[in-house]
Simulated scan of single mutants.
Amino acid sequence: MLKIGKRESIATSFEIGIHNATLAIVIAQSVLGSTELSLPAAVYGVLMFFVAFAFGFLIREREPQTAMAS
């Protein structure tokens, strides 16, 4: 629909996930004034890197291996 490639859409998804965790922490502490409400976002913010790494590893495009000439 937006005519962007697969790599760009994956990169955008990762960036949005990272920024959403940070935004949730800022809103919980500054707007709502609650440290307790920022804890789930903080936990997500830490765990998200491991999940994102695993997901990125699974969906990466593998380059075809060429046969070595002997």
Rank of each mutant, 00 (worst) to 15 (best):
residue 1 M to P: 11
residue 2 L to H: 01
residue 2 L to V: 06
residue 3 K to S: 07
residue 5 G to N: 08
residue 6 K to W: 01
residue 10 I to K: 01
residue 11 A to Y: 02
residue 11 A to Q: 08
residue 12 T to N: 02
residue 12 T to G: 08
residue 13 S to A: 13
residue 13 S to R: 09
residue 14 F to M: 02
residue 15 E to S: 04
residue 15 E to M: 04
residue 17 G to E: 05
residue 18 I to V: 14
residue 18 I to M: 04
residue 19 H to V: 07
residue 20 N to T: 12
residue 21 A to E: 07
residue 22 T to V: 13
residue 23 L to T: 05
residue 23 L to R: 05
residue 24 A to L: 13
residue 24 A to M: 14
residue 24 A to T: 06
residue 25 I to E: 10
residue 25 I to S: 05
residue 25 I to D: 12
residue 26 V to P: 05
residue 27 I to L: 15
residue 28 A to T: 00
residue 29 Q to C: 12
residue 30 S to G: 10
residue 31 V to E: 07
residue 31 V to Q: 11
residue 31 V to H: 11
residue 32 L to I: 09
residue 33 G to N: 00
residue 33 G to Q: 10
residue 34 S to I: 03
residue 34 S to P: 01
residue 35 T to N: 09
residue 35 T to M: 05
residue 37 L to S: 04
residue 37 L to K: 14
residue 37 L to M: 03
residue 37 L to G: 08
residue 37 L to W: 09
residue 38 S to C: 13
residue 40 P to S: 06
residue 42 A to D: 02
residue 43 V to T: 15
residue 45 G to T: 01
residue 46 V to N: 04
residue 46 V to M: 06
residue 48 M to S: 06
residue 49 F to T: 11
residue 53 F to K: 13
residue 53 F to R: 07
residue 55 F to K: 00
residue 57 F to I: 01
residue 57 F to Q: 03
residue 58 L to G: 08
residue 60 R to Q: 12
residue 61 E to R: 05
residue 62 R to W: 12
residue 64 P to G: 05
residue 65 Q to K: 09
residue 65 Q to R: 08
residue 66 T to V: 14
residue 66 T to F: 04
residue 68 M to R: 10
residue 68 M to A: 15
residue 68 M to V: 13
residue 69 A to Q: 05
residue 70 S to A: 15
